[in-house]
């Protein structure tokens, strides 16, 4: 059963939620749309294509403390970090929600990542359907859809009179106010983003590991890492100690497989020293290793990397190219 929320009701509901949750929602900051904690419902901007960064930072933050080291009288004690409050992320696009689900696979696999797991358990996702497909979108080819409710607790779909509210989880159901009315109408037809045939990409890649294609592609790549930082499924991180005036913390931060220090071991040896090898790793991990391990391609088709890449490395082109290359060499 679907509900309908008028725009006013939606705002009122959001304000209500603010009492119990940290509400994280799209906010306009200069030219960007960023997920930020809000203090009033009116700060939210629901008229956006997609956020500049995916919501993954609210599960795997750019920087977080894993534990701190306390020293007293020669005794050392380790104090693990805790997750403080329940959170609600409002306005998540279905593709990004799927991104979280994909990150779950490695991070919740035993032994699970405790902080991630804890945040996940204490976060509600309120999704927002896409009314139109953007030129960079290709979610339907990557197992999602503009109106996919599978990975959110509640999905909102904007229509003229307000929002259709689909509830998919118990967690979601418990949050609903009484002000929402029943909606018996049909759901609007979702837009159709560009299709990217993908069926042959995995077998193709197995034969192309040593192909010059990667080197040529890497010519253009700057290894700027933007793709990884804006990607809803990239979860690589770095762990280091941070000490300041006797306070010691073990900290983890986002990192990208595109940085040359990512795999360089102490002493200087780097198994992925060349540009080509690192760029290749990104696509092999997304399109081959991850599916081999977890059955899904590690891409949700949000198109952020395409949009943000300063030199237009377009994953859709690469998927096409690889299949064509293999077809050619096979023939």
């Amino acid at each position: 059963m679907n509900l309908l929320a008028s725009k006013d009701n939606l705002i009122r509901w959001l304000d209500l939620l603010l009492h119990e949750h940290v509400v994280i929602a799209p906010v306009r900051v200069q030219g960007l749309t960023l997920f930020q904690p809000i203090s009033k419902a009116e700060e939210v901007d629901l008229d956006f294509d997609n956020t500049t960064l995916p919501p993954k930072g609210w599960f795997l933050p750019p920087t977080e403390t894993l534990f701190s080291v306390q020293r007293n009288d020669g005794q050392t004690k380790l104090v693990p970090a805790m997750v403080e409050r329940d959170a609600l992320i409002f306005g998540v696009r279905p593709c990004d929600a799927r991104g979280i689900a994909l990150m779950d696979k490695p991070l919740l696999q035993e032994p699970s990542d405790a902080l991630y797991r804890e945040r996940h358990a204490r976060t509600v996702l309120v999704g927002l359907s896409c009314r139109q497909a953007r030129p960079e979108c290709f979610c339907t080819s990557m197992g999602s859809a503009p109106n996919d409710a599978s990975y959110v607790d509640i999905l909102l779909t904007e229509i003229e009179v307000g929002y259709i509210v689909q509830v998919t989880s118990k967690k979601g159901k418990m949050l609903l106010p009484e002000s929402f009315t029943e909606y018996e109408g049909v759901l609007p037809t979702p837009p159709e983003p560009r299709a990217v045939p993908i069926k042959d990409v995995m077998p193709a890649m197995k034969g192309l590991f040593d192909d010059t294609y990667w080197e040529r592609l890497a010519d253009r790549c700057l290894h700027c890492s933007i793709c990884a930082y804006v990607c809803p499924t990239c979860y690589c991180f770095d762990v280091r100690d941070y000490s300041d005036r006797g306070n010691i913390e073990r900290v983890r931060s986002w990192e990208s497989c595109q940085s040359s220090g990512f795999t360089r071991i102490a002493g200087g040896y780097n198994p992925r020293a060349t540009k080509g090898s690192r760029l290749k790793q990104r696509f092999y991990h997304k399109l081959l290793y991850f599916p081999e391990q977890f059955q899904d391609i590690a891409c949700v088709g949000c198109g952020r990397c395409i949009k943000a890449c300063p030199v237009n490395i377009d994953i859709r082109e690469i998927i096409d190219d690889l299949q064509q290359l293999e077809a050619k060499s096979g023939a």
Partner: peptide
């Protein structure tokens, strides 16, 4: 993300000060 560095023609140090550990000039906290 260091994209500003990666795209800059004037940035070409084999090991950027920002990634040096000894001494650690810039911590990894974002």
């Amino acid at each position: 993300c260091y994209a500003c560095r990666q795209i800059c023609p004037g940035c070409y140090c084999p090991e950027c000060f920002a990634e040096q550990l000894s001494p650690l000039w810039v911590g990894i906290r974002i």
